[in-house]
Write a protein that binds this DNA or RNA. Structure first.
Length: 533
DNA sequence: TCTGGCACCTT
DNA sequence: GAAGGTGCCAG
């Protein structure tokens, strides 16, 4: 469908190779462990198909509009869709190869925000990240031809602020900034991912960054939503809209809400004053310079000093980041403890959507702990959430309140969505409580730039980045890894189904018990550590 | 800041 | 016509 030339060009990102199985950036001593310049991998390191995949964000212009204003996404207890919807056009796939497409939404930084004086301002330290969850596209796994045939829409993805959400929606904290990420995973022979040789790419469009809210803060965003979202058509027309509100209130005359008055006043006032103060959020770069490309050319070191005209100054056009690599080392393949194949799961209340626990939420100071994912069962839904607690091969440490997992409950560690600068990645090395480890994603490094104090936590045994790269990321032995099946499994020819039974892994408590395990650093942004819990 | 109910709208 | 997605608003 919509193919934007500019976007297509812009979408040229950098492909990073990592022969050791650990992302290059994760072991680089330099800034965030990122190499000075992206290294083009040889085909022995990177799966050709994965490497060639191009992703274009659909309705990029609309996203830009929102982004320039400061995108806000409503989150509700019941779950709210994103608007604009996350839709992409994918090309470059091997038509016959099966892929799994999924999205996770990771914190863009570790701040909490507030909308003050008609602009977003940092209001403090971020709340502990919600259990990370992944939304797997319902069509997954599907052949490349299928994905490339038409737009891939993630419009059914829903966001919630309910920490105990039973529907598998992606859980977020209100007033926090997030970055959606698209992961394209090459399905293995079992139509799953997580096993050895798993190859995948992560694509990040930073114009999709948003701040989660329970009610819109910026009137401009409200108007953009109303103007562009068909479901909000009833609110279209400024005057009519006001009149409609009046009617809703049983009045026949226009009534302007206080908020609207305030917003409009502030907007006007702010305009006269000079618009948003640049840099309000600008000190939180979401993308690492080295992974930021424009028109196929590295943008270079963009920095926080850059002047931004929008609330999300970190963005740059075009903003696509992606990282691809293939796990050649068994010690790094995705291996999850799937006690039951998807087909064994029974339908659940989770309808049509697939959510998984996401490995990559920033969760200071717990961000480095592994995530435990259980599958939600339903014909199409499958969710994995990040465990906010320690999880060992045989169970989830610190989850004494949890019943024994009756189904699948996987653990994985992830890399924080924003830069951890060297030591962050190094921290993980010493840790060895997991049975499987899967590190990846260059996307992580791209998504965030500053190092937050909150992210600094006691290091079990500071080690060099090289050591981390040379050894199993989490220090897991292959012995344990091999004991676990793929995270995402689907029998050939059968619909991909998630495991059911969240209760088995009710790890949604926002504040997991403090445990040494939490010192485990997250080495990658995408499924990294998997083990049964 | 957040929630639930509402009317209006699309699908 | 039903189901479900919207923003608005009182509380």
């Amino acid at each position: 469908m919509l193919q934007e030339k500019s976007s297509a060009v812009a979408d040229k990102g950098v492909t990073l190779a990592q022969s050791s199985g650990l992302p290059e950036h994760a072991t680089e001593p330099s800034h965030l462990g990122l190499p000075a310049t992206p290294r083009i991998p040889d085909n022995s390191d990177i799966d050709q198909n994965i490497e060639n995949i191009k992703v274009v964000l659909h309705e990029k212009e609309m996203w830009k509009k929102f982004h320039e204003t400061g995108t806000e996404m409503i989150i509700t207890k019941a779950g709210r869709r994103m608007f604009p919807s996350y839709k992409v056009k994918v090309t470059g796939m091997n038509p016959k190869t099966k892929y799994i497409l999924l999205i996770d939404i990771v914190p863009a930084d570790d701040h909490r925000y507030k909308f003050c004086d008609n602009k977003w301002m940092v209001a403090g330290k971020a709340e502990p990240a919600m259990p990370g969850r992944l939304y797997v596209h319902p069509d997954s796994p599907a052949a490349g031809a299928h994905w490339m045939r038409q737009l891939v829409s993630f419009q059914k993805l829903k966001l919630t602020n309910n920490h105990l959400d039973p529907f598998g929606h992606i859980i977020l904290n209100s007033m926090h900034k997030y970055q959606p990420r698209l992961h394209i995973v090459k399905a293995d022979e079992n139509n799953a991912f997580g096993s050895k040789n798993t190859a995948y790419c992560t694509h990040v469009f930073h114009e999709t960054t948003f701040i989660s809210v329970t009610s819109y803060q910026n009137h401009k965003i409200t108007q953009l939503k109303i103007e562009n979202n068909p479901f909000a058509k009833g609110f279209r027309g400024s005057d009519e809209g006001d009149l409609r509100v009046s009617r809703l209130q049983g009045k026949d005359y226009p009534v302007i809400s206080k908020n609207m008055v305030r917003q409009r006043f502030l907007t006007s006032h702010t305009h006269l004053a000079g618009k948003f103060s640049a840099g309000v959020l600008g000190d939180h770069r979401q993308v690492h310079p080295h992974y930021q490309y424009e028109s196929g050319v590295p943008l270079g070191s963009t920095d926080s000093q850059e002047t931004f005209s929008n609330p999300f100054p970190a963005s740059r056009e075009p903003s696509l980041l992606y990282h691809c690599f293939k796990h050649r080392d068994n010690s790094r393949h995705l291996e999850l403890g799937c006690k039951r194949p998807y087909l064994d799961t029974t339908p659940s209340a989770v309808p049509e959507e697939r959510y998984f626990r996401s490995p990559s939420s920033h969760e200071p100071p717990l961000l480095s702990h592994p995530y435990c994912g259980e599958a939600l069962g339903s014909r199409e839904a499958c969710m994995y959430g990040g465990m906010d607690r320690e999880a060992g091969p045989g169970g989830m440490a610190g989850t004494e309140d949890l019943p024994p997992p009756s189904l699948n409950c996987n653990v994985w560690a992830s890399m924080p969505p924003y830069p951890r600068y060297g030591m962050q990645t190094v921290e993980a090395i010493p840790y060895q409580p997991f049975s499987a480890h899967y590190t990846s994603m260059a996307a992580a490094p791209s998504v965030m730039p500053h190092h937050s104090p909150s992210m600094q936590r006691p290091q079990p045994a500071p080690s060099s980045s090289s050591s981390s790269s040379s050894s199993t990321p989490s220090g897991l032995g292959s012995r344990d890894r091999e004991a676990h099946p793929p995270l995402y499994h689907r029998k050939p020819g059968s619909p991909l189904r998630p495991h059911r039974d969240f209760p088995a892994c009710r790890d949604q408590s926002p504040m997991p018990p403090r445990d040494p395990v939490y010192h485990l650093p997250i080495l990658a942004t995408f499924p990294i550590v998997y083990s049964q819990c």
